[in-house]
Design a protein around this nucleic acid. Structure first.
Lengths: 245, 245
DNA sequence: GATGATTTGTACGTATGTATA
DNA sequence: ATATACATACGTACAAATCAT
């Protein structure tokens, strides 16, 4: 199995929650044009420079990327598979719309998937991974105290991904990553208030402790709570998003 | 290419007057060539007429389906997204290999996803859906007593999907369906022994009862157990598949 | 290891279906 | 409602990369 190291990446501005191709072993391939376009569009959608419902005309995109429509088509197919783009036959592709019910559903499942990861991690993580987790948590504390929000956000993504990997279940890891990337356009790019960051860090601490002590049920419950708190913080921050209930 | 009247297509039952939409994703197109190819290939892979690791040459497939490479490519992309096909850049696409660790991971997650569906269903299902579930369970009992294995299998799929829908979470439903379809090639086509069918039906009964009574935790636990029992039954039936531990 | 055959990646032209005036 | 415009769906040709030999 492959404990993915935190080393990234060839590009400067990484969309949060974005990783290379599926963890099924092959780590290509910026070698095809389509993949390059997928990467670029993902970043733009997540950063909301391409807002929900924005039309994605094949010809214009091809022009923008200096490519023909064929690789653009392939890219749009991949983006549709990952949920960022919707395709209707013979109709112009669009950035996935902002659907409140769907966002609610995504957060709900995200919380459960991450809780499951944390549970598994509590029993399956190697000693080395546990040490890494504690160390990363310390680093995040530093970012928090320094008021470095960007640093905290980047580290936060790594923190969660380390726990996905700790579950030692590659498919679970895929689902968690995929769900996180679907959620990415709705997680504000820089919406974390410093108050929320402090709370987040405290929650992380409890989770790390439970995982390191091997308390599986506790770890899962804390993680679920952490995700729901994150959701509520986002929903409160305007966004126009309201809880469903 | 026009529908040549020289039906020399040298291969049997691929009706251009095709079947209708795939049950899961109707976000995608209606009646494009690529979709009919996806449909046909999915069936062949699940039925193992296209075994794991079988090469899927674009040109040959296009010939077989009387289409050009373009829609074949689109179809292969969709199949890759649903996990049935693996794509490496510049390399010939293949049916997803049979990887024991991966199968184990898939079953593990499947059990948890279905448990989650059952939990949510126990609190979220409408009265109508509960009645449907009980009725379907009765029907399945009929198939069991009649020794109708094919009927039981079809009804079984419907049974589980009804519970996915009962969760009232569209994304959770998508994940459950997707995971089930990834598992489909490994669930034997007709591997259920009548003994296993009887046990399965009994387990269903307990699940239905828990859901109808609204006992969420119980419903989840029973469903998890049911899935793991199904897995063990499959693993025992040869297949060449061995448990990982 | 180099070379050749095969297959994928890309470009572009045509046809068909959708949406709008 | 009919017609027109326009974007996607598909077909085909060429270039580049892979793998066998």
């Amino acid at each position: 199995m492959r404990p993915s190291e935190g080393e990234e990446a060839s590009h400067g501005s990484l969309p949060p929650g974005f990783v290379d191709r599926d963890p099924s072993g092959d780590l290509l391939s910026r070698t095809t044009l389509a993949d390059t376009i997928v990467y670029a569009l993902t970043e733009e959608i997540v950063a909301k420079r391409l807002p929900p419902d924005a039309p994605l005309d094949e010809a214009r995109l091809g022009e923008r990327f200096g490519a023909s429509r064929t690789p653009v088509r392939e890219a749009l197919r991949q983006l549709a598979a990952s949920g960022l783009v919707v395709l209707r036959a013979h109709s112009t592709p669009r950035v996935a719309p902002l659907d409140h019910d769907r966002i609610h559903d995504l957060f709900d499942v995200m919380a459960e998937l991450e809780a499951l990861c944390a549970m598994r991690a509590a029993t399956a993580m190697s000693a080395v991974q546990r040490a890494e987790l504690e160390s990363l948590h310390e680093t995040l504390g530093g970012s928090m105290r320094a008021g470095d929000q960007a640093g905290y956000r980047a580290g936060n993504v790594a923190f969660h991904q380390l726990i996905y990997a700790g579950s030692r279940n590659a498919y679970l890891q895929e689902l968690a990553l995929g769900t996180r990337s679907r959620l990415a356009p709705y997680r504000g790019a820089q919406l974390e208030s410093s108050a929320r960051i402090a709370a987040s860090h405290a929650e992380h601490g409890a989770i790390v402790s439970a995982i390191v002590r091997g308390e599986s049920v506790q770890a899962g419950a804390l993680m679920r709570q952490h995700l729901l708190a994150t959701r509520d913080a986002l929903l409160k921050l305007g966004h126009g998003l309201m809880p469903r209930l």
